[in-house]
Design a protein around this nucleic acid. Sequence first.
RNA 1: AGGGGCGUCGCCAAGCGGUAAGGCACCGGAUUUUGAUUCCGGCAUUCACAGGUUCGAUCCCUGUCGCCCCUGCCA
Length: 560
Amino acid sequence: MSTEEAAVSTVNNFLKNIIEEDLKNGKHGSVITRFPPEPNGYLHIGHAKSICINFGLARDFGGRCHLRFDDTNPAKEEQEYIDSIMESVKWLGFDWGTHLYYASDNFEQLYQWAVYLIEQGKAYVDDLTAEQIRAYRGTLTEAGTESPFRNRTVAENIDLFARMRSGEFPDGSHVLRAKIDMAAPNINLRDPVLYRILNAPHPHVGDAWKIYPMYDFAHGQTDAIEGITHSICTLEFESHKPLYEWFLDNLPIPVRPRQYEFARLNLTYTVMSKRKLQELVQKGTVSGWDDPRMPTLAGIRRRGYPAASVRTFCELIGVGRSDSWIDVAILEECVRSELNETAPRAMAVLRPVKLIVDNYPVGQVEEFSAANHPQKPEMGSRTLHFSREIWIERDDFMETPSKGFHRLTVGGEVKLRGGYIITCTGVVKDADGVIVELHGTYDPASRDGIHTADGRKVKGVIHWVAVDSAVSAEVRLFDRLFSDPNPDRGGADYSQFLNAASVEIVSDAQLEASLAHSTAETRFQFERLGYFYQDPTDSRQESLVFNRIVTLRDAWVTKK
RNA sequence: AGGGGCGUCGCCAAGCGGUAAGGCACCGGAUUUUGAUUCCGGCAUUCACAGGUUCGAUCCCUGUCGCCCCUGCCA
């Protein structure tokens, strides 16, 4: 399981207060929560919030958290999703130990409870079509009407339900419904469907069943079976709570899990619904569920976000009940602060232009030692090569500098990070006026600081890579998938807000030699550019591919 | 009057009758061989609005306004 330690949280929220109270007054001896995904898609950052809440609460109060697949609808569920979900939860740093469960493991018990309800006269088999059931349900402001099949005898219901189970009827021909109240103001209580016929193989229980319980009939009871004390879900399930409790009240179940709801995570510049994410995948807008631009945990992981930064984010945003939109910038800030501490520094030139140091001896190579982290000597150092020709960033030179620009200009000087101070002496352009190379001279006495021989202080420091030992690589510069902060807003077609520049492939970046044999899992800070991570699926020793995780903050860009 | 929920700084969010925490963002300034990091300082006389109770209300009551969820044989 994961080796990462999720730290105990110290921030307060209403769920903690409830649990603290329940523990203090003896309502519960310990806390048991659960994370109950349906395996019908990949987990996303919104699920991370739920995972952190559920596993976090269990951790903070010395209880436990179950991983439970809410697999009651085989029409949408697949083993691929089950696998990916377990992967993602583990990656996030949480451990369910031996407590892996499937709602489908309880199908026999659930069936018996359904029979019990029938025997009590509290459930009946309905022959109405789906459309008829909808029409009979009424509207938000008008009561529904009772099904003509509502008053079948217990014996008839038992018989019909057994035959539904045995596969005697086609899909959609019958359902089992609870007999509650067709006039209930809460529509969920208007004789909700308990079971439907589905002749579909199930990823976990195979073809054992022809009928499957609905979420409402499975969730609370499964919570009870597992001994869940606090069943935490998102706000949209709040109107289901009376039903959740109705089943617990009307079935011979001794324990009482309690449902609590919190506001789901909304993040700016992305979409979060499984349907939309699936659409992005199916339409080929992104390369897959794990496309590094996706808000899925698989995508975030592939992009290079450290799991710890996602946990920090979930901790930081808190838990409440009001609809909220969190700015992705906060997530990005969590990533930066984690990586600033942990990422070794290196140099890479994304858009190289050659700088020839005319007064440096042809063929000479020097080796400089450079710290892997400016504030952490314990992270060691690596060797940099310097020679007559070096690559520098095209953006770090301006022929006619804008106000405040303090990098290279003709006649100006700049410090090469970890190297010499360089003075630019000339520009060579091709017929189209495009700069093909720069010329300059170096000051041999300037290795140790940013002060020139005559005591002046050089303002600009730029990154560079020696041409001879440089390693060429592909670098993928990812940006936000959408250009609008709320691509979902107003039911508009979110695809119109896709950011056309959400990925830029730089095919010939030049990296410092030390990166050639770097560990694939290491996240680097390419100085002055951002944090980068070898793409886990496409990068090869002989053809490196780096993903940009996130840029560095840039006060210069912000100011401009 | 269908039912349920929510409204505290630009974005989140503590607070639970005793006189507005914190984070992010933003604005200053210092340090810095990353225009990074770090560090200091600033940033709600006010808690959707209007009444009421109280010595005292963001917290209690009433009303108004705004937003979200619910009419799947999805979860």
